[in-house]
């Protein structure tokens, strides 16, 4: 069994009129891919943005290697990569500058930045575009670039919030390979997605959220077997229908 990396402990998030998360607890282990699934408004993006420290939890705690992340936020953020749903690049900087600055923001030395830049631009097929401004890239390349930027400082945990949404099928498949590669390199991936086939292909475990509550956490194979269905999508539909009937 891999070591526990992040413990999400009874996290709640309330907005003025809505409770988006109602006491979510989840453990993430080193080197695994966990997919967060759920319908729109289930709380996936809220949970991932809390783990990414973009928003605070209303209550509950997150422990990274046994210590609350809020005790030393900087140390936690240094181990974390966050790729939000919508690309938020510095559009007026070149791709290369975007990556170089991403390294500098995390205190990397110039030599290490150059080395990492070479590796990532080759891995993600970004080399021909390095000197172009970010806004000229197509959606698929912007997404690849976003993942590359979040990996510049070699984080141990990466959060990918719907990284393949709106992409062509072949680009989605290319990004799947990238995500599998992350796992091979020992990086823990928290993947938020709407695509059940994606979750089934990539995940070690899936976590189904509904109305701010975790309904199920298990391996895709175990869920398919337990529900006696052909694939994860059928499991999800069955579960959601049962929830609606209740």
């Amino acid at each position: 069994m891999s070591q526990l990396l992040l413990r999400i402990n009874n996290v709640r998030k309330s907005y003025q009129t809505k409770e988006a998360l109602k006491g979510v607890s989840l453990d993430l282990f080193e080197g695994e891919i966990v997919s967060l699934l759920g319908v729109n408004g289930a709380g996936k993006t809220t949970l991932s943005s809390i783990i990414a420290t973009l928003h605070p939890a209303t209550s509950g705690d997150l422990e990274f290697q046994g210590k609350s992340i809020y005790e030393n936020l900087t140390a936690y953020r240094l181990q974390l990569g966050f790729c939000p749903q919508k690309p938020n690049l510095s559009l007026n900087l070149s791709l290369q500058d975007n990556l170089i600055f991403a390294g500098r923001f995390y205190g990397m030395q110039e030599a290490a930045i150059q080395e990492r830049l070479q590796i990532l631009s080759q891995q993600f097929g970004l080399t021909p575009y390095l000197h172009q401004k970010a806004y000229v890239l197509s959606g698929g390349y912007q997404q690849r670039f976003m993942i590359a930027r979040s990996l510049m400082h070699s984080p141990r945990l990466i959060i990918l919030d719907e990284p393949t949404v709106g992409l062509d099928p072949h680009i989605r498949r290319q990004l799947w390979d990238v995500i599998k590669e992350l796992k091979k390199n020992g990086i823990t991936v928290l993947l938020t997605t709407h695509y059940l086939d994606e979750a089934e292909q990539l995940s070690d475990r899936v976590c189904i959220l509904d109305q701010g509550v975790i309904k199920l956490i298990d391996t895709p194979e175990k869920l398919i077997a337990d529900f006696k269905e052909k694939n994860l999508e059928d499991v999800f539909v069955k579960l959601m229908n049962a929830t609606e009937q209740n």
């Binding site: 990414a52 420290t53 973009l54 900087t74 140390a75 953020r77 938020n88 559009l91 923001f105």
Partner: peptide, 14 residues
């Protein structure tokens, strides 16, 4: 729109 501020708000500084 672009929301670069949300990227900056996750950087390892307060």
């Amino acid at each position: 729109g672009n929301n670069t501020i949300s990227y900056q708000l996750t950087l390892p500084v307060p």
